[in-house]
Nucleic acid binder design. Structure first.
Lengths: 342, 342
DNA sequence: AGCGAGCGCTAAATCCTTTTAGCAAGTGAG
DNA sequence: CTCACTTGCTAAAAGGATTTAGCGCTCGCT
């Protein structure tokens, strides 16, 4: 059993120098005038003793702890936050930092307590992540602590990381057009007519704008639009069923997310049609659910891990805070094919 | 903007006492002989100034940081680790602790570094979690630091939290028997004959033992057993297809996990049979994928969150370290019905 | 010879808290 | 009146690092 952690004093003693000298050498201070020999001895001593600095003690003096806080409303319910955390963990590790995770369940009281707990531990910065992109309330932070919004925005903290939804929306349309589709394209999940300007979330608004912008640019119009409030498989199923009945000449579906697409798959299959021979489908998110779909669903991915990484880089870097958009990769699988008359 | 964090010295000054007195009062030391009046003044001062102790400084002195480390091989890939983390976070919050999360990807080098980073921050204890239950290598920890294995075991650290698989396995059989099944039960995913004593994981072994034990107790035998290495939907599909061809009198399926069950659903449906009218299905895990199945899949759940909570309680409590088994809840949905001749 | 600068290093202060040792005043017993 | 003890409180040390200020010497220059 290791008796006691080895301290800087131990290293200095073994190297025959003061702790000051040892500290300066180990931290590679630029103005160091210490001799070559001293450097050698200190590094040797540190290595032999297996010295590791005590971060708490250092933090006490420097007010830097090499620790960042990650506060999210929901950690586990979906794969969503997990991806963000994974990316953040990776980037933090690369930067020699470590991550304190706190979950608030969206409850402002718990949020306040969580943040206080993090600040008590002198975190260097905080990442605030939410599931559904929105303007997020953030309590006041002490001066030295910066914050980055992840999938969220906040007036006082302009540094934010969001998926680049507009081009993502355009990409979905482009995939269909490139496959030869021009007529019979339907939109599952959103309808301007039905929803007007009701606000879903920052990102959804941009996604829709991208889709509609691209349609307009190509001079196309949707053959039908289905408004759905909860983007769950069941509603994707019923809406698609309805659509197929009302509108037999539909040849392609843009689903607002993969869960709707999952339901659409069921409806299409049940109607005796085949994907992509009779109907092409493209969707968004690259949700875990896509793993269970045959044929594979072509989808515009939410770049969770990249976003998590980016947030940490932004927090640790010293670029001025601004909104950073992370590209949404196109995941091409097998659900899009050329249109075919039926 | 708050200028500077308020320190204990500020509180003491405002209360007209020494920092010693303030410290003793705020920490509620039992042997305190300080006056009622002093208590009042210190508490008032602390409240007015919004004093929060600096955990790093306290930890420096007490070697306690109210922080625990959570090391896992995979945080995000499946919902698995997320559930564990969520539970751990909850329990830690209740105990006034905070959680440092580190991911190792299963790489021993990263694992070593992650643990070192946690120890540099003086964590009070560490939870080691792995996806697939197994004996886990854990590097030596300093004396004061305890460890709890989560979904894993380790000879040097007997405190471990595992799902209680044996009764879980028995429950699956019981559900079928209670619905009236006695013949035509097949096992999808495991076959003693094909696999012999090959070791999958601690927990799987117990799950199988429970299933086989219950079958034997009821004097039943499987009409077929399908060995499958990778428990993924695709293989569940092909194995079930095969089974239905070879063995038309099958009436119930025990699937080793929900992903296999997902494939089995597809196969059964495609064969023109209905669940549960023609075939009953029961399975394990209560994976997210079950949300997408119609009719709802009856499954024996892996109690991830409860396990995460339990691990923290074990770590923070002072019970002697031992293996703790967390019950697996039966999630009854609609995939089991009475057997019917075809 | 005298002065300033450079060199190689260290003592001491600092960060914030807890803990140990002990001081001064009052009280009760003898 | 003295001694021992209690009461209510504080000074100082400790914990492990970083940072500031500066010491004593040599060298080069005028």
């Amino acid at each position: 059993m290791s008796r006691r952690r080895v301290t800087l004093a131990d290293v200095a003693r073994r190297a025959g120098l003061s702790t000051t000298a040892a500290s300066m050498i180990l931290n590679g201070r630029p103005d160091t005038r210490l001799s070559e020999d001293a450097h050698r001895r200190v590094h040797a001593a540190a290595a032999e003793l297996g010295y590791r600095p005590n971060v708490a003690a250092r933090g006490l003096r420097t007010a830097k702890t090499l620790t960042i806080g990650f506060v999210s409303d929901l950690v586990a319910t979906t794969r969503f936050a997990s991806g963000l955390i994974k990316g953040a963990l990776e980037a933090a590790e690369n930067a020699g930092h470590v991550v304190l995770v706190a979950e608030t369940g969206g409850d402002p009281k718990r949020e306040g307590e969580a943040i206080a707990a993090l600040l008590d531990r002198q975190v260097d910065g905080v990442i605030f992540a939410v599931m559904r992109a929105r303007e997020l309330f953030v309590p006041e932070l002490p001066e030295g602590t910066d914050a980055v919004m992840l999938n969220a925005t906040n007036a006082r903290h302009p540094a934010a990381v969001l998926p680049d939804e507009e081009p993502g929306g355009r990409a979905a349309v482009r995939l269909l057009v490139e496959a030869g589709h021009a007529e019979g394209i339907a939109l599952i999940g959103q309808s301007d007519e039905a929803e007007g300007d009701v606000f879903r979330s920052t990102t959804v608004a941009r996604r829709v704008a991208g889709i509609r912008g691209a349609m307009a640019d190509h001079g196309l119009e949707f053959v039908a639009e289905k408004s759905i409030w909860q983007w769950e498989p069941q509603h994707g199923y019923t809406s698609t069923m309805e659509l197929l009945r009302q509108c037999p000449d539909v040849r392609a579906l843009i689903c607002m997310n993969d869960r709707l697409a999952f339901g659409a798959y069921q409806a299409v299959t049940e109607a005796g049609l085949r994907i992509p021979d009779d109907i092409s489908i493209v969707s968004f998110d690259n949700d875990e659910v896509t793993a269970y779909l045959r044929p594979g669903l072509t989808t515009i991915a939410l770049p969770h891990e990249a976003m998590g990484r980016r947030a940490v880089d932004l927090l640790l870097g010293d670029e001025p805070g601004a909104e950073t958009l992370v590209p949404m990769p196109v995941v091409e699988r097998a659900s899009i094919g050329p249109p075919r008359g039926r």
